[in-house]
């Protein structure tokens, strides 16, 4: 699956955490998500932030 994050008028971290950290909390495996989802984003910090929430979720944020 490819998720294109460009051409959106910004993301709040609360949304990113809920969307991607939420997948892990709802039972999706971290490695499975990393393997299946590819992110397209001009802004490298967005991809880094999403990877962080997939790895750590809200607990360590």
């Amino acid at each position: 699956m490819i998720i294109d994050l460009d051409d959106v008028r910004g993301f709040g971290s609360s949304f990113l955490e809920e969307a991607f950290g939420g997948l892990v909390r709802n039972g999706f495996g971290v490695e499975e998500l990393k393997k299946r989802i590819n992110f397209v984003a001009f802004d490298e910090s967005l991809k880094e932030e999403i990877r962080y929430y997939i790895d750590h979720g809200l607990d360590e944020a």
Binding site: F11, G12, S13, S14, E17, D43, E44, S45, L46, E48, E49, Y52, A61
Partner: peptide, 19 residues
């Protein structure tokens, strides 16, 4: 090496109390 700092700023401002 600014990617992490941009992410930190966004997180600090919009992760909590932004709902």
């Amino acid at each position: 090496d600014t990617s992490r700092f941009r992410f930190d700023l966004r997180k600090a401002a919009t992760l909590v109390n932004f709902d």
